[in-house]
């Protein structure tokens, strides 16, 4: 019904801060308080750095996933893609050592390879989904299997290891940082901030939400639907490449079991953060909170011995379901 009066032009828009929007933040705060009260080491520099740095891989990917899901898509292949990109990157770097030697050029070349591999993988997903018109779930289910299997094949069933010297040279990219903040944390923060700005402030973010809300309306409103959809998958692919760049120096190797279940963790983080799985509405800051919630649960279970860490997955599962249930009650009476 619309029995109502025209609002005067000068009326300021009313700001509404619905409680359910803040739910994830409250949950995060509760977890931090819980963690701090259970273990005095929880808030120590070492532990905080450890949690944040390990969150960074999933976090960087989840930011990209937020755009894909907001635009009404899904990408199940990111975990396998990360393994594949890592494998390709390691092989490429090993192959380039004779010409480039171990040094900055080698690392930079490896990074370029990783970004290109991620770009290419995202492009293939995006092309099949937007141009060929196959459902995102099907395409990425298929590419999930393909990338995983290619990685195992490249590693011949074992592990691909970066050359020892190169590994030592590359290691600081994971373990060092500026002013005591580790590189992965810095990169994650920058990606998150840029992602949040892109989602809220740019036409691209608005177009993603419009496309996810109603593709027809977007099309009729002169939005280049195919290009926007493609862009979300390419963006995600490149962020997978970026996450891999941060991941490889940690262990210096990749195998068929690298990045297993990352896709589900990334999707879970996006959903906990309040992005709508069907698309049409997404928030990057929520995703960041979601990622932190998931890794804090893991961390708290490991630090405190009240609940077995083996129940980590179960608790995370409960949180995902709970988050969606809590966010559902936003329908007004009308």
């Amino acid at each position: 019904m619309s029995d109502s009066t025209a609002i005067e032009g000068r009326t300021k828009p009313r700001r509404r801060i619905p409680l359910h929007a803040l739910g994830p933040v409250l949950a995060l705060v509760a977890l931090i308080i819980l963690g701090a009260s259970l273990n005095s080491n929880f808030l120590s520099y070492g532990n905080v750095t450890n949690v944040l740095a390990r969150s960074a891989f999933i976090g960087i990917i989840a930011v990209g996933m937020t755009f894909v899901i907001t635009a009404g898509g899904i990408d199940l292949s990111v975990g396998s893609m990360a393994a594949f990109v890592a494998g390709v990157m390691i092989l490429a770097m090993n192959a380039m050592i004779p010409t480039l030697g171990v040094g900055v050029p080698l690392v930079l070349a490896g990074m370029v390879v990783a970004l290109l591999a991620g770009f290419g993988a995202g492009l293939i997903n995006g092309f099949l989904i937007s141009k060929v018109g196959i459902e995102a779930f099907i395409v990425t289910l298929g590419s999930m299997g393909i990338y995983r299997s290619l990685t195992t094949w490249l590693a011949d069933g074992g592990t691909l290891s970066l050359n020892f010297e190169a590994r030592s040279f590359y290691r600081p990219v994971y373990y060092d940082g500026i002013l005591g903040v580790a590189w992965p944390i810095i990169v994650f923060a920058v990606v998150a901030i840029l992602g949040e700005l892109a989602m809220r402030k740019t036409p691209f973010g608005r177009h993603c939400a419009a496309l996810g809300a109603n593709e027809q309306v977007a099309k009729y409103s002169a939005v280049n639907v195919d290009r926007v959809r493609m862009a979300t998958y390419v963006l995600l692919g490149m962020l997978v490449g970026l996450a891999t760049i941060m991941y490889v120096p940690r262990l210096g190797s990749a195998s068929g079991s690298t990045g297993v279940l990352w896709e589900l963790e990334a999707i879970a983080a996006v959903i906990i953060g309040g992005t709508v799985l069907k698309g049409g509405y997404g928030r990057v800051w929520g995703t960041v909170v979601g990622v932190l919630i998931l890794s804090l649960i893991d961390n708290i279970l490991n630090l405190a011995s009240i609940v077995s860490p083996y129940l980590n997955g179960a608790i995370q599962g409960v949180i995902v379901i709970l988050a969606v249930v809590l966010q559902r009650e936003s329908k007004p009476a009308d």
């Binding site: 939400a209 419009a210 109603n214 309306v217 009729y220």
Partner: peptide, 18 residues
Amino acid sequence: KEKGLLLGKSLTENLTLL
């Protein structure tokens, strides 16, 4: 309803989309 407006979105987002 199906092709013109994003019914679940705010007035502003609809107004400026085109």
